[in-house]
Nucleic acid binder design. Structure first.
Lengths: 161, 161
DNA sequence: CGAAGGGGGTTCGTCAAGTGAACCCAGCGG
DNA sequence: CCGCTGGGTTCACTTGACGAACCCCCTTCG
C-alpha cells in the first residue's frame, strides 16, 4: 500500500497533472457529443445529415464538433461523388480516430454491465475472424491478463521536483 | 463489407441508439470534470480539498460532480476520523467505480500516443506482480488478441422492427 | 426556363452549465 | 473568545447547448 491507501496509488505530489494524458484526450474528445459522433463513425455513419438524424444533436453543435474533430485529425473531410449526384463530402475516421476505439469499447462495456435494464447489451462485439465475443482486457508484457484495476501499479515517469 | 463501407459497420437503421451503452455511460460520467475526478480517485485522492487542489476545478462544480458520482454509486461517501482530528468524510471508489478503470486507461493510452510532446507518457502502468508494463487489448473468447478495431464486427442484439 | 428539394451549413434568441470570488458553518486549538 | 481548516453554498458573469429559422449550392422535375 502507500500513503493514500489504494493499491497502485501514487503519492499525490509526485506527478504533474498538467500534462496528464487523460485530460489531454478529454480536451480533444471530451465535449458533449464528440464521443457519440465517433461511436456513429465506427458504426459506419459518414455524412452530416446522417449524424444529425441518428444523434439528434443540434446542427450548430454537430457542425462545430465535426470541425473540431477534423482539426484534431481524428476525422478527415473527404470529397466524393456518387454517380449522377453532385459532389459531396463525408467524414471518415483517420488512424488517430480509429485508435480511440478502445475508449469507446470501454465505455460501452461499463454501460452494458451497469446500465442495461434487461442485462442484455444492445450491441455485441465479435471477432471478425472467429466469431467469438470480444472484450477489453489489461495484459502485461509478460502475457498475463490482469483481473482488475487492483493489479495495476501507476509509475510516474518524472519524479517530483 | 456492408452498405456503410466500414468493416464491422452496422446498417444504420438496425439498432436503437436510445439505449446505447456509450451514451448511457456518458450520461453518468460524461460531464466536465467527472472523469478527471475519477482519475484522481484511482491515484488515491479521497478528500474534497485534495480533489479541489489537484484539479483546480471550481468548488461548486466539484461539489456537484462528487454528489452526482455518489448518487450514481460510482463513489461512496465514507465518514472517518483520524486520531486527534474531528470527523471527516472521504470519497472512495465503489466496485462500480473501479470498473471504469479501463475507460480511463483507454483515454490515457490514446493521449500517451498522440499528445505527449516528448513521446514519453507521463504515467506508466505496470503489473503489480511482475512489474511489466501493461496495456489494454481486445481479446476474444477464443484467446486471440485483436490487432485493431478493424477486426471487430458489431452485432446488434435486437433486429430492427 | 423557373420551382422544388436535399445536403451542409450559419445565425439568432433563449436557457442551462461552468467559472471565480465571496460567504457560511461546524469543530477544534489556543 | 478568536481564528483556522475542511467542506461546502451563493452570487454575478461568461460560456456553451439548444431549437428554429434562414441560406447557398447543386440537381432534378415540370
Amino acid at each position: 500500500m502507500n500513503p493514500a491507501g489504494y493499491p497502485g496509488a501514487v503519492s499525490e505530489a509526485v506527478w504533474d497533472r498538467s500534462r496528464c494524458s487523460v485530460a489531454g484526450t478529454l480536451a480533444v474528445v471530451g465535449e458533449k457529443w464528440s464521443l457519440l459522433v465517433l461511436r456513429e463513425a465506427f458504426l459506419g455513419v459518414r455524412r452530416f445529415a446522417d449524424f444529425q438524424r441518428v444523434l439528434g444533436a443540434p446542427r450548430a453543435v454537430l457542425s462545430d464538433r465535426l470541425a473540431t474533430l477534423v482539426a484534431q485529425g481524428v476525422l478527415q473531410r473527404v470529397p466524393y461523388q456518387a454517380e449522377g449526384e453532385r459532389q459531396r463530402h463525408e467524414y471518415r475516421l483517420t488512424q488517430k480516430g480509429i485508435d480511440l476505439h478502445p475508449a469507446l469499447v470501454a465505455l460501452m462495456e461499463w454501460g452494458d454491465r451497469y446500465l442495461a435494464e434487461d442485462g442484455e447489451a444492445p450491441l455485441e462485439l465479435r471477432h471478425r475472424d472467429c466469431g467469438e465475443p470480444v472484450h477489453l482486457a489489461l495484459v502485461c508484457a509478460a502475457g498475463h491478463e490482469l483481473a482488475g484495476a487492483r493489479e495495476v501499479r501507476a509509475v510516474p515517469r518524472v519524479p517530483a521536483g
